[in-house]
Structures are given as C-alpha cells and as structure tokens.
C-alpha cells in the first residue's frame, strides 16, 4: 500500500493496516517522500513490483487510491510490467479490471534510436547540440538529424534553447524516458 507523507494519508494507512490485521491479511505500507513526483513514484513502485514478481508472487494493483499522480504512476508501471490493474469504485465498491496490456516501448524504436535515447538518458546532466551528439555517437550529422526527427515525432526528446547561444538548440531526453527504456 503506497501513501503520501500527509497526516490524513498516514491515518488512513493505520486504519487499513488495522483492518487487514483483523482479517488476518498480511499488509504493509510504503510512504512516498514526494507524492507529486511522478518519475520517483513510478521508479519506486516498479522496483517493488519487480522484486515481488521475482519472488514468485502474483501481483495485482488497485489504482483507485492516493493522489492522481500516484495512481497514474501505478498505471504506468502496470503497463510497463504487465501487471493486471483494477479500479475499485469509491461508491459501489465494484472491482473494475482495467483493459491494459504489457507494453515494451523500446520495441517501437529502431536500435539506433534506442541507442541515441539511452545516451541522452545516461547523460542528462550534460547539454548536447545535434552536432555534438553526432560526434559523441560517431554518426554523420545528417544521420543524427534523421534519428532525432523520428524521436522528436514520438515525443521522446525535447529541443531547448541553449542559454549561452540563442541560435543553438540543446537536445534532451523527455522526462521519464528512462522508464520506457528500462
């Protein structure tokens, strides 16, 4: 059970844990330090889901609770890891299975596009122009331009103005691309 560090959320966790104890159901709570950081939440949930799956547990996720970003991060992880997700309706308490399938986004990029994107993800702290990127990866500038246009069309990269040179554009991996590649 994932929850925020808000007092109301901690109270709710205590009640759920007590209820589960009364039913004899094993339960534990995970407090998220920032319930509004989508990437951090998704990374944490994904690591937990992978650990549980590796231990042989059958994992299902109820995404109805928490902040919108928490349930969105959980939904993203369910899609990336192929975990069945349900939404338990607040009023009817009906369990609604969500129509989703495992998605390996990396399969929808070419090997070269994956390589470029992985490089940008690994070097987030450094700024690269198109030319510098072509040089770093040892490809012709025109070839790099083609890959970047394809990645840009998919929303995988962003082009931002170079603060030191108004004519130049820096290339960055879009936020969260590490999740789609990993």
């Amino acid at each position: 059970m994932y929850h925020s560090d808000h007092a109301k959320s901690r109270d709710a966790r205590a009640k759920v844990l007590e209820f589960c104890r009364a039913l004899g159901v094993t339960a534990s709570g995970v407090e998220l330090s920032d319930a509004f950081d989508l990437i951090e939440i998704a990374t944490r949930i994904r690591a937990d889901v992978r650990r549980e799956k590796a231990s042989g547990a059958a994992v299902r996720f109820n995404i109805a609770g928490g902040t919108r970003l928490m349930s969105s991060a959980a939904l993203l992880v369910c899609i990336l890891e192929g975990v069945p997700a349900t939404y338990v309706h607040d009023e009817t308490h009906k369990e609604i299975p969500l129509p989703l399938l495992r998605m390996t986004y990396g399969d929808h990029l070419t090997a070269r596009q994956r390589e470029v994107l992985a490089f940008l993800v690994e070097n987030r702290e450094r700024a690269y122009t198109e030319t510098a990127l072509a040089k770093a990866l040892g490809v012709h500038k025109a070839t790099m331009n083609h890959h970047l246009r394809e990645l840009g069309a998919k929303g995988a990269i962003e082009r931002v103005r170079d603060p030191d040179d108004a004519r130049a554009l820096q290339i960055r991996a879009a936020p969260g691309m590490e999740l789609l590649l990993g």
Binding site: L69, L101, G155, P175, G176
Partner: peptide
C-alpha cells in the same frame, strides 16, 4: 507534468 509515452504508439500494437 508530462506522462512518459511514445506518441502514436498504441497499446494494441503489442
């Protein structure tokens, strides 16, 4: 906050 997704890539394509 933008959710990471590859534009134009639909789940059904998996």
């Amino acid at each position: 906050v933008r959710l990471p997704v590859l534009r134009g890539v639909r789940i059904v394509e998996s």
